[in-house]
Amino acid sequence: MKRRMLLSLFIPMILYSRCSLANKLVPIDNLYRLDILMSKIREFSGNLEASIAVGERFLQLYPEKKETTHLMYGVGCNPRQVHTYSRLKFLKRRYQDYLLGNTLIVDGWVLAQAELCVCALVALYHSRLSCR
């Protein structure tokens, strides 16, 4: 647990100092959680390039939604419990979004906010990786 805490503090700090986009988009305390979340999301997200494109467009259109905690909640993940996050939780959130009309239109696509948040997280994460 201590090791994890250390990692969560230091690795993001190193990245934070090197990557301007990540600086703008990702608060430092969320990077470690984002790493874990992305390892889970990678299991069920589809075409990477398409996800990045949709995610970037989404963040362009709705810059107020770029805060990672918000995005994590958007995909049905409690940022304090990223280890318990699963595909099922995502599907449940997505279903609820479609049912309740929590959708947005991005480049004509009618998409659940959960899907857009996933794409935004993928875009965000990818931009951070490309900075490494």
Partner: peptide, 23 residues
């Protein structure tokens, strides 16, 4: 059109894209 998109999404039948004159 958006409602139909939401319903098809909910049922996982596909995703709906609207034409530019609607967006």
């Amino acid at each position: 059109a958006v409602l139909i998109g939401e319903e098809f999404g909910r049922l996982s039948y596909g995703r709906v894209r609207l034409p530019s004159w609607l967006t």
